[in-house]
Design a protein around this nucleic acid. Structure first.
Lengths: 336, 336
DNA sequence: CTGTTAGCGCTTTCAG
DNA sequence: CTGAAAGCGCTAACAG
């Protein structure tokens, strides 16, 4: 690679480095068009590129933002990154990327590395949004995506879990489903689950948790499981009621559908169903599954927009954290 | 953020900046254990972090690699990035990330931006591996992943497309399938498609392209499409022949399966099928779909390994490009 | 309009 | 074992 510095091209142009610097920064008013053209020519010829490192040091600024994602493998993550990178580019920021692989410790290391890098801001898809590490990050230059802390300490952008579910479930109610159940992993204080369930209760107006069915996280159920039993119980005794299920995400939907298959119930006929999240394979199902389609790309965009906004305003003191809700798209098919 | 510099902590420690620097770089032999401990204490207390920017400038090195991916949205990409980031971390590199969104022009801009950033090396998942932009990048510090140029100019790591497909299709042949078809997006000179198809021809020994079925890229087919027509034609007139399809990737598989569904053909009974790529949902299909499981994570790892290797060896002149094939895993289920 | 010069925060000889 | 000082490549007053 060329080892041209600003000095070299100053020498070639027979001007001072200051003039070259001005040229590089577009301060054309400070030089004759003659030297301006000359410089332009030289720089073109030599394929000279100023060192961003030196520039950053001199200006004491760093147009890069650090991003830490909980799990790059999660299909939710890619579109978020896509949105981020689009906006980064638009705003002239580079993004340095780290993956925590769902490991809190690693996330902490990543964040620290990013701090040493002196990034201008942070975008974080947190492993655990309630972790105390986020307290060390000022809300003046960080935003969190996807998961929401119980008590947010920094700006957060998430999908509108509650209202999406409420809308979908209301649709079920309107269609005459009068015995509805929310199928979920244990709530465990996880914001996404809690908010989706809140939407369910909002729509159904159930006052207690009798209609919450919990399936274990990350274990595959089989015949005779207690889940199968409750499912069978509900469906066998439904009488005139129309029963419907809302699955909190695609994995719980899968559990539900497989159990129903084992018990020989058919959806749309024996029960209605809808789910959060959409995946390719749902298109293959017949009838099609109604679902809540999350706009992860928009989350990425919104997060970066917010960050950019914060980065370009001078705060007297740290702004109060806000949470921004990104709307979803409801896809109605024939599963209820 | 703290505005501590090396001077501040030198002052606090009543030593020179040189000593602090030595401490920071682990040159403990150059100081008494007394000052060493003192410094350790101070740095801990003050939460001082040296500026990477200044350090990079002073040492004239930059432990970051630039990555440009063709399309972050492609499910293939995430595991690659995962592998990259894992290895980057292990080797002490940061990675600055750019997405080209399948746009050649944008890719060029991204690469140029990365050059200005003075990254130590490049990992590129190219939009078009035959683009001339890659000629500007020395093979001494770049490696390409996923797509292979007709005539590679830099090291490339790809999955072993041809042999994987050949092996899978041979298995179909061995099972008695004697009328096989390759379902693909238009080949369009794309190396992955060409190589997979080459594997198919290798196994089937077909000499012409009569058994290549092309589906349009990124458009969803419906009843009455010409694809439906050819499919129906093949299946309706198969007579005693056993027909099998190999789908070039999961999206074409989906097209195939959906069309078959529309036409009321069942796989494993009316035809056999296998595919490149594996996704979660394939495990739930009944019967299970035989597939070629690509190890994208390994690609990421291998790419970074190779880059690191190059970055730490001094070349007299640019090394000759090599292509590294990452083996796949064949998963046999009951779809043929 | 152009040049001089003092930094930015750290590294690295070279003396002591 | 420790410090002084000269850079790394660029920017930004400030003079001229």
């Amino acid at each position: 690679m060329d080892k041209f510095t600003i000095k070299d091209i100053a020498k070639l142009g027979e001007v001072s480095t200051a003039t070259v610097s001005n040229f590089l920064n577009g301060n054309y008013t400070k030089m004759s068009v003659a030297t301006r053209d000359k410089l332009a020519g030289i720089i073109n010829k030599t394929d000279y590129h100023p060192s961003t490192t030196a520039r950053n040091l001199a200006k004491n600024e760093n147009k890069t933002i650090g991003v830490s994602v909980a799990d790059i493998t999660n299909p939710f993550t890619s579109p978020v990154i896509s949105g981020l990178s689009e906006r980064c580019e638009a705003y002239g920021y580079k993004m340095i990327f780290t993956n925590s692989n769902n490991d809190e410790q690693r996330e902490i290391e990543n964040i620290n590395r990013l701090r040493e890098e002196e990034v201008a801001g942070f975008i974080i898809d947190p492993v655990n949004p309630d972790s105390s590490i986020y307290n060390q990050l000022s809300n003046a230059y960080t935003v969190i995506v996807d998961r929401q802390a119980r008590r947010s300490v920094v700006d957060t952008v998430v999908t509108d879990n509650m209202n999406s579910v409420a809308t979908m479930v209301r649709k079920m109610v309107a269609k005459g489903y009068d015995d509805l159940y929310f199928v979920s992993w244990p709530l465990d204080g996880v914001s996404t689950r809690l908010n989706r369930y809140a939407g369910f209760k909002l729509a159904t107006k159930y006052l207690n948790d009798d209609h919450l069915i919990t399936v274990p996280y990350n274990t595959s159920l089989s015949q005779g499981s207690s889940f199968d039993a409750t499912l069978d119980h509900i469906l066998a005794n439904k009488g005139d009621k129309r029963v419907g299920f809302f699955a909190m995400n695609s994995r719980t939907l899968l559990q539900l559908l497989k159990a129903a298959q084992r018990l020989n119930y058919q959806y749309a006929e024996d029960f209605g169903v809808a789910t959060y999240e959409e995946f390719e394979w749902m298109q293959l199902m017949n009838p099609g599954i109604s679902c809540v389609r999350q706009d992860s790309f928009a989350i990425g965009c919104a997060a970066m927009d917010r960050l950019k906004e914060k980065l370009t305003t001078a705060f007297d003191n740290e702004p109060a954290p806000e949470v921004q809700l990104i709307p979803t798209e409801l896809v109605y098919r024939d599963s209820f």
